[in-house]
Design a protein around this nucleic acid. Structure first.
Lengths: 133, 133
DNA sequence: CAGGATCCCCCACGATACTG
DNA sequence: CAGTATCGTGGGGGATCCTG
């Protein structure tokens, strides 16, 4: 007997982010959350250590980075490799699944980055129309 | 003056989400935020009225939906068309730019939805290993 | 260096009420 | 119907300290 999700067709997806209770909503939020997306994007280029990641992701705090990485690791998107040396060395890298997610996320990110001039112009028009409220 | 795109390894991107002060970071957050992504996803299928959107996006409050739509409209991703009838009728639809963003976002969403079984299994393994603290 | 533990603040968000 | 206005709260998130 096959599970429904085996046949991931176009139509009836077993998981649906639009439903409040669907677990995919939570994972999507980890992925697209304030720091999750940036962490995945940074790791796409190769494995990084904790503080390398911190420096790469401008503005993230230790706590939030740690928290973010745990969530991504739990979801199976990031692999954590600790070496019991002194000083300790921990490398983070994407799992194959994480690479798939990161790829699609980066496509989105680059698209947005590439269209920021349009966005900025739209904002000006909007603000002018509404009288810079 | 020195540009920052060198660090990303990307070629000629004037905007870089990894930099704290880059405006693309804000737009990306509108797009991938808790409700922004779902609004874009819902509108991808066609224009919708306010309450249709509300029903479509399970769990969103009036206030947050309104706020979200304003941000997306300001960024030039969503077009708002109000008809001065009684009762009022307002349709929201994606702009061409918004369609571009939504397409890429939906690619990501569908990928995540389609891999949720893997994610859920990864979580179980993670929780087992760490022994439910 | 990697990150857990703590403290605390602020505002994102929901609930409710009101308007055109 | 399509929103705005107001208020209260939880927890997201930053700062700091501490340990292995």
């Amino acid at each position: 007997m096959e599970t429904m999700q085996e046949r991931t067709g176009e139509q009836n997806l077993p998981y649906n982010v639009f439903a409040k209770a669907c677990p995919s909503r939570g994972t999507l939020e980890h992925v697209t959350g304030r720091w999750g997306g940036l962490a995945l994007g940074a790791l796409y280029e190769g494995s990084l250590r904790f503080n390398e990641l911190r420096r790469r992701i401008d503005g993230v705090s230790e706590k939030m980075l740690s928290q973010t990485l745990h969530a991504l690791e739990r979801d199976g998107l990031v692999h954590r490799e600790a070496q019991p040396t002194n000083p300790p060395r921990v490398d983070y890298e994407l799992t194959p699944l994480g690479r798939g997610v990161a790829e699609r996320l980066l496509t989105l990110i680059h698209f947005v980055e590439g269209r920021m001039d349009d966005v900025l112009q739209a904002r000006e028009r909007y603000d002018d129309t509404r009288g810079a409220r």
